[in-house]
């Protein structure tokens, strides 16, 4: 695979093609990932999440700017939702990051969710591997603005930065349910708006109720458009990463991530085999038998399961 060599050399066109191949679930995807995998494991992954319009993309833009000064090669994966009706998408996150478009040390890739729930795309994890193998030091993932269930960002990143803004009103209430707990670092952006202090106090209060958590979660104020508070955020990220590395929490996280991932691949493949079996023709036959009252559903299906398992041996 020529593509593998080119990716390892950091060739942008090859990286872009590889990510499309992953997104399209092409037949060569598995070989590609297996071939680059030995070169993975160096990059650090930051996940950025938070409600729509909180300033995530603007913040990423400023994080890139600062980390470029620090000499890092940076890749960004910016996820936006696909329309459930047309399957199309408008991918607008990179609009805020276009200043870095021609920087050879920055690669920005927009990604549509393509029906994947959870706030990231199905292709996100494997795209991270491509960037990692291609020599990027830092990979930033911007997830879809969160509601209640878009929390998969924790499964793909080493650290999650939850971006909030003042004036969300009851939204913080709604977020509390699950999403409010996923931050490693809490950023209150648009501190130039009224109510930032109040929100800071609320978040701190909420965090004080959290039990059994060893690592302290910083709460920081930023104003992304004014490039204010960015350096402080980066240094808090570094401290946090160092702490979880020393406490082995990071290593544990990464192993959990692999576990989740292989579980998904495994069950996906098993499902594929099962779906081959239960084509509509067979289903109709079964439904007919049950409809006629010849047999009862559970005993019938249990027998079928036994037969299926025997066939797999």
């Amino acid at each position: 695979m020529e593509l593998v060599e080119e990716i390892l050399n950091g060739d942008f066109r090859a990286i872009a093609k590889a990510i499309s191949m992953i997104e399209n679930d092409g037949s060569e995807k598995e070989e590609l990932i297996d071939r680059i995998y030995p070169k993975c494991g160096r990059a650090v992954v930051w996940g950025i999440t938070g409600p729509p319009g909180a300033g995530k993309s603007t913040l990423v833009d400023k994080l890139i700017e600062q980390e470029r000064i620090n000499g890092k090669k940076i890749a960004v994966i910016a996820v936006d939702p696909s329309s459930p009706f047309s399957g199309g998408a408008i991918l607008g996150d990179r609009l805020r990051m276009q200043e870095h478009a021609t920087d050879p040390g920055v690669f920005i890739r927009s990604m549509a969710s393509r029906g994947h729930l959870g706030g990231v795309a199905g292709a996100t994890t494997d795209a991270v591997k491509v960037f990692d193998a291609a020599g990027f030091d830092l990979i930033i993932i911007e997830s879809i603005g969160v509601g209640q269930t878009e929390i998969e960002i924790i499964e793909v990143s080493d650290i999650v930065i939850l971006v909030l803004v003042p004036g969300m009103g009851d939204e913080i209430q709604a977020l509390k349910a699950g999403v409010m707990e996923i931050g490693d670092i809490y950023v209150i952006n648009k501190k130039d708006h009224d109510g930032a202090d109040k929100l800071e106090a609320e978040v701190n209060y909420m965090l004080s109720l959290k039990e059994g958590d060893q690592t302290k979660n910083p709460v920081l104020l930023t104003s992304a458009i004014h490039n204010d508070g960015i350096k402080n955020l980066i240094s808090e990220i570094q401290i946090y990463l160092k702490n979880i590395q020393e406490s082995m929490e990071l290593q544990k996280k990464r192993k959990t991530r692999i576990k989740q991932e292989i579980k998904q691949i495994f069950s996906g493949k098993i499902m594929y085999e099962i779906n081959k079996k239960i084509n509509t023709e067979i289903m109709e036959e079964w439904a007919e038998a049950i409809y006629n009252g010849d047999i009862s559903p559970y005993s019938f299906i249990n027998k079928k399961v036994q037969t299926f398992l025997k066939e797999q041996k």
């Binding site: 047309s86 399957g87 199309g88 408008i90 991918l91 609009l95 478009a101």
Partner: peptide, 12 residues
Amino acid sequence: LKDAGYEVIYTG
């Protein structure tokens, strides 16, 4: 184009 099912990158 989005409504036609394409993925559109918009850069401003």
